[in-house]
């Protein structure tokens, strides 16, 4: 039974696309058949993060409008056999996406994949509502920062009212993924901590992704962080999160503070 997952946040720049790529790759590494779908029409970026930007021929809009077949638009990942990408259109605007078009594509993808992961655009407009519309589960990405948490709360409200599942009176399963977390700053009271965020949003925690240079390194080379450096802290956190999505119970790893040694400080080296 396929699962449709939306990765959403309201606020931009919190790590939706990074998380979509990392979770998609982590699930595919576990042998699941995964498609990541970019809903950010006009501002696509999932292709770039996945390192497939030069292989895009057809896109979501082409398929929705019947210009191309789904099989023509799907791009298979070069590293993982069971990972696929359905890119967004870069030239069209978000109004080109219709409810019926999205419904049909999601229904089709459900028959072909174990996981359909929809990367939502920022905001609460049409693109974001369509990305969540047919989802069974949602990953709400937030940073430990007030505006991001407020927007996450707004998105949770929309998930509970604007999705097909909610309209049928069913519960859409929601998880919060906290990204760019800095344990040291949270411990010093400079940043909202995990308990604060969970108490405010009141949905279960999927994972804590530490602030890390490995995330930027991975996006620089166009590789999901779980593939690029699977041993790194963020990759391990994403891999655990993917296992939780699969229904496993995994102990929550709170990222450790990466302390710089005396010599590193002296030489002005950054923590790895």
């Amino acid at each position: 039974m396929a699962k449709v997952l939306v990765v959403t946040s309201g606020k931009g720049g919190v790590g939706k696309t990074t998380s979509t790529a990392a979770l998609g790759a982590a699930l595919a590494q576990r042998g699941e058949k995964v498609v990541v779908v970019d809903f950010d029409v006009g501002l696509r970026n999932l292709d770039l993060i996945m390192g497939a930007e030069r292989r895009v021929v057809f896109d979501l809009i082409n398929v929705a409008q019947g210009v191309a077949k789904l099989s023509q638009a799907l791009i298979r990942d070069k590293r993982l056999e069971s990972l696929w990408l359905l890119p967004a259109s870069q030239t069209r605007d978000k109004d080109a996406l219709t409810d019926e078009g999205v419904r049909d594509i999601i229904a089709d993808l459900r028959t072909k994949f174990d996981w359909v992961i929809c990367d939502s655009p920022a905001g609460i407009e049409r693109g974001a509502t369509l990305a969540m519309r047919y989802a069974d589960e949602a990953v709400v990405v937030t940073n430990p920062e007030v505006s991001s948490v407020r927007d996450a709360d707004r998105i949770i409200g929309m998930l509970d009212s604007k999705t097909v599942k909610a309209e049928k009176g069913e519960q859409i399963k929601k998880h919060v993924l906290i990204t760019r977390y800095d344990t040291g700053r949270a411990a010093r009271g400079e940043m909202l901590n995990i308990d604060d965020i969970l108490e405010i949003l009141a949905i279960p925690l999927l994972g804590i992704i530490p602030e890390s240079q490995d995330v930027l390194k991975a996006s620089n080379v166009g590789s999901p962080v779980t593939l690029n450096n699977a041993a790194s802290q963020p990759a391990r956190a994403y891999i655990d999160a993917a296992r939780r999505l699969g229904g496993e119970t995994v102990d929550m790893m709170v990222p450790t503070e990466q302390r710089r040694g005396f010599m590193d400080r002296l030489l002005g080296r950054r923590a790895a």
Binding site: R150, D153, G157, R185, A186, R188, G189, E190, I200
Partner: peptide, 25 residues
């Protein structure tokens, strides 16, 4: 000052704001 950072303020502001916004929704 370092012992109590700005996070408690953030948390309190959020709680008040969201209680209000959820009511409106």
């Amino acid at each position: 000052r370092r012992r109590t950072g700005s996070a408690p303020v953030a948390r309190e502001r959020l709680q008040i704001l969201l209680a209000h916004e959820r009511g409106l929704r």
